[in-house]
Design a protein around this nucleic acid. Structure first.
Lengths: 210, 210, 210, 210
DNA sequence: ACGTAAGCGAGACGGTACGTCGCGTCTTACC
DNA sequence: GGTAAGACGCGACGTACCGTCTCGCTTACGT
């Protein structure tokens, strides 16, 4: 889609660069990789990278964009019954399997040697998806925006937190189990978010003083 | 504490460097700050930084360590009744207020221009605190649906997600409200985690107004 | 002559390249001109230049060769009576007029932004012509005070020196006057070179007018 | 004089760079020398050159300036009797000996691989010296400026021409002889220049037509 | 209180990577 | 077959920071 009517050489070059970057990140972390490292791993001249990307950061971010676009398009329209019943959300399992497949790469990207921009972008994408789903599930009349966004970023952050833990510990549980655990945690929170936007017990005792 | 019996000049220099870094981060983001930027903002020779810190990363991480240590010591031992009642957790409000006070700094650190290592370190610290609290609350031989660590990283990630959103949007709600929203989301998840259930259905009052 | 039975397209292309180079040299000096500059000024693809010339230096030198060949063929066989009388040497006037016609070009070529190889080639050509003339004029078993080659390079260098000055100062005197001045300087030296002497003192007429 | 109160390291570095350049020029010509060549020959980091000179051209021109300044200061004030009698001018011999000592260097600089700017600068310096001497020798009353400049550039160019020939042919005659030859050629021309500014025989037959 | 060791300013330097430029070659497609 | 368009390998450029290293001056401390 992105590279549709492009010179074959261009396609080959870009793919080689992306592959090289993904290969190198687990080996030495992102920051310490130089453009020369990438291009020599891709068997391409250093200047060639600059024909296609602004710098190595641009290369990385475009790769992440592709990943996230693929993720987003994999997700079917949400089905309330599934969330309701806290059944394993198929898309989540698919995503976790994908991540497990590139575990070395994602472990670095979400770890101390990672890139903040990637985590932020992933969080925003997940939050956008969550927002969409929550609005789909939400009772029609209610239009309060802040709580929905909060819930969405809550869910997105929680996912990233758990996935990071999962990767840091070398995926101690299979994707299917992790997915079930996750749904068991997210579902009640989201349910609470939809059913009532304030804590169940409204604070009848106002916080005295401030 | 750290600088106890140190030469006054040393204390002045180190403080000037920290202040300079904190001042510069909101202005230009972390990565693009050079050692020369920091030292010239601190009115100090460039070589001087290397007398006190390994490099600019060392300076940052030592600052973050101090922050997190202060946070952790602010938190009292968890009190089950509070979580139980889903009342605003005081330490959370305190933390949010502290963050709001340095919003410019934290907004950058958790944003695209931030430092992955900082976010990771914060997440781990929060997860450690959560683990401790969950273990404190957990029924002895409980059949919790998810391992404690997963729940802890879930909560930690969720907190970071919401706080990041809060900072990115210039704190649209006061710390007290945010804290209440947060507890309303975390509590059901954590309850589910430790094997208890909350009433699934709100009494019957539809979410009126907000 | 060079391009006789060549494809018309080839002729057009080569001429366009030469014209472009001559046009560009006064504008930005030689060194800083790139092949892309030349070809885009010639409305030709960059790769096309390499079909006809090895590089931009080859293009320049071939142009200079043409110039010098034209010069040399313009010069009639030397006539002793003219040198004797120190009358303006016709070929010299012709040459100066030609140079004045392309003053912008030659000013650059002989100036700081010029090309050493061009100056050297011009000097050698002039020296060869001078050698030829001196040998023609020289008494058979003469006891000339300096070897012919030295005198020839003396004259050639002197010519270049004066012409360079003339161009650098925007031709402050017309070619005819300059030619007369030049002969007034070269003649005594060349006479001395071939062992003759000129009358040391002019009759008595002071330099009237110019 | 130029480097008086400079850091010793600076002096050492600059000298090493100059030496390296002079050493390299005879080996590979000027153009093909890279900054890396110079600095690695000088046992200095590449970036260091840029601390002291704008680029390799700046380094070269500053060296030439030093040379020319040294030359100019070696010349005693001109003495008319010497020029008059066409005796070997001592400074000229000194200069030729100096050039012979660095023949490899100057052969390149004045040859096809040379730098136009150097030849131009040398010519201007020589012309300035000649102008000064001619004005010193000239009859007081006469104030025609053009001819003096022409004569000066004539002499300067002639010197360069002969010296270039001398170097190209591996100094076939010793400096003392060359100096005598040169004076034998220059003296009559300069004498003519001073005594009479027009050719000895004013053209009583005007050049018909132009 | 004061001499002296330390902290520090100034800045040269070696080193590594950057992003850019220009070259000469090559492929692909057009006319 | 001569070109246009443009990707590419190559190599050098000038710049930016880094971390280290003198070399002196200044300053706070310990006796």
């Amino acid at each position: 889609m992105t590279d549709k009517k492009l010179d074959r050489r261009v396609q080959r070059t870009r793919q080689a660069l992306k592959d090289a970057l993904i290969r190198l990140i687990p080996e030495q972390g992102y920051e310490s990789i130089t453009v020369a490292d990438i291009t020599s791993a891709a068997n391409v001249n250093r200047a060639t990278l600059y024909m296609h990307y602004r710098d190595k950061n641009d290369l990385l971010l475009r790769m992440i964009d592709d990943e996230l676009a693929a993720f987003a398009s994999e997700l079917e329209p949400p089905d309330p019954s599934k969330l309701n019943n806290a059944q394993p959300s198929e898309p989540l399992v698919v995503a976790l399997r994908h991540i497990a497949g590139r575990a070395d790469f994602y472990r670095v990207m979400f770890g101390s040697q990672g890139v903040a921009a990637v985590a932020v972008q992933v969080r925003h994408t997940l939050a956008a998806i969550s927002t969409q789903r929550l609005q789909y599930l939400m009772p029609q009349g209610s239009g309060q925006s802040a709580p929905v966004e909060i819930s969405a970023h809550f869910a997105a952050g929680a996912l990233i937190g758990v996935i990071s833990w999962w990767l840091e510990n070398d995926q101690p549980v299979p994707p299917e189990h992790l997915s079930r655990y996750l749904m068991g945690l997210i579902a009640p929170a989201m349910y609470a978010s939809i059913g009532l936007t304030l804590p169940q017990r409204p604070p009848d005792a106002p916080s005295s003083g401030d």
